[in-house]
């Protein structure tokens, strides 16, 4: 069929050997941020174990593992939601407000028997989806920058949270809590692994590819038949739902509800995603990296504790860590680019 003779092929580097090598190098380069994130988690855990062993003359056990995992879960969920949005070159500042609202609702409503609890969980997740839909509609149809849309909805969600729960209180039913948490075993790790696996599958779905394409270049995505508006809408809906999940998780891991308890997650979810190698310029990153970032930030707090750092200095080290991690990775990236 193919008349190769007509085609005067353009041959360049024809040999397979260097090509194979190049491809492997490419694979590493493409996933470098993810590799860095994994290395960071392992490194931080190692430092943690050493410090723990020095100060307590024992190794951390399942209790410690459970504690870290439990603390990392709300942030992991929020960071994955944030990642979805950032991948489309957006940003979701309303994560904190949504977590305020859902945290408050969860603390008030998730109690009184399995059925009510399950029902309210679904309702809360739907509220998250609705909030996300509002963001998505404003971004996709209102043509407003995501940072401004979510700044506005952040304020709205925060207000609604205070309306729902004017002063801290309420708590999630104990039975419900034990579904997620077990103080003696890191059973919550199962949820983390599920979250990671869900991402791996999602990355390989049609919507997954479309999200990456949209974040890469909207025009080009359109040219590739990507329904950009629908993709954006869905991304914010997913982001909102995950933030709602994070709010519920926050309510189960803390003793009571607080309508301002979610505020810090706006910025820490961005920090976790960025440390996990998600590019704020869109189209690059992985939720697995974001989960790693969430664990890094969680373990960092424990490390500071065992390093006898005054807790008041905590934000200092978190900030420093964020700046250094991102600054270093930018420099390394630039160095790699130059070497190419």
């Amino acid at each position: 069929m193919l008349e190769r003779a007509l085609l005067s092929p353009i041959s360049g580097r024809g040999e397979q050997g260097p090509r194979q090598l190049a491809r492997r190098r490419q694979l590493v380069a493409q996933n470098a941020p993810l590799v860095v994130a994994v290395v960071l988690v392992v490194g931080m855990l190692a430092i943690y174990i050493v410090l723990y062993a020095i100060s307590l003359s024992a190794f951390p056990g399942t209790f410690e593992a459970a504690s870290i995992t439990d603390h990392a879960i709300p942030l992991s969920l929020a960071a994955v939601g944030q990642t979805m949005v950032i991948l489309t070159r957006g940003i979701d500042l309303s994560v904190g407000g949504m977590m305020d609202l859902t945290n408050a609702l969860a603390a008030l409503k998730i109690q009184g028997g399995f059925l009510t609890e399950a029902l309210w969980t679904v309702i809360i997740l739907l509220i998250g989806a609705a909030g996300g839909l509002l963001n998505g509609l404003l971004v996709a149809f209102g043509r407003i920058q995501p940072i401004l849309v979510t700044l506005g909805t952040l304020s709205i969600f925060q207000g609604l949270a205070l309306w729902v729960l004017p002063s801290p209180g309420g708590h999630v039913a104990t039975g419900y809590t034990s579904l997620f948490l077990n103080p003696n075993a890191p059973s919550a790790l199962l949820w983390v692994i599920l979250l990671g696996l869900a991402w791996v599958a999602f990355r390989r779905s049609r919507l997954g590819v479309q999200i990456f394409a949209t974040g890469n270049d909207e025009q080009s995505a359109r040219a590739n038949s990507v329904p950009v508006i629908r993709t954006r809408l869905l991304v914010y809906v997913l982001g909102g739902t995950l933030a709602a999940g994070a709010g519920v998780a926050l309510a189960t891991t803390s003793t009571g509800g607080d309508a301002t308890g979610g505020d810090v997650f706006t910025l820490s979810s961005i920090a976790a995603a960025v440390i996990g190698g998600v590019s704020l310029f869109g189209g690059r990153g992985s939720a697995v990296g974001a989960i790693c970032g969430a664990f890094v930030l969680t373990v960092l707090i424990d490390i500071l504790f065992f390093a006898n750092v005054d807790p008041l200095f905590q934000p200092f080290f978190q900030g420093l860590f964020l700046v250094l991690a991102v600054g270093a990775s930018t420099l390394v990236g630039r160095y790699l680019m130059r070497r190419r």
């Binding site: 940003i91 910025l267 961005i270 920090a271 960025v274 704020l280 310029f281 005054d310 008041l312 200095f313 905590q314 934000p315 200092f316 080290f317 978190q318 900030g319 420093l320 860590f321 964020l322 700046v323 991102v326 600054g327 930018t330 420099l331 630039r334």
Partner: peptide, 23 residues
């Protein structure tokens, strides 16, 4: 100079300023 995105850089510096002030 480093090319850190403004959101990340200033977010980190806010933490640094907070930690220093409180500590």
């Amino acid at each position: 100079l480093l090319g850190v995105p403004a959101v990340v850089m200033t977010l980190g510096m806010n933490g640094i300023a907070q930690g220093l002030s409180l500590g």
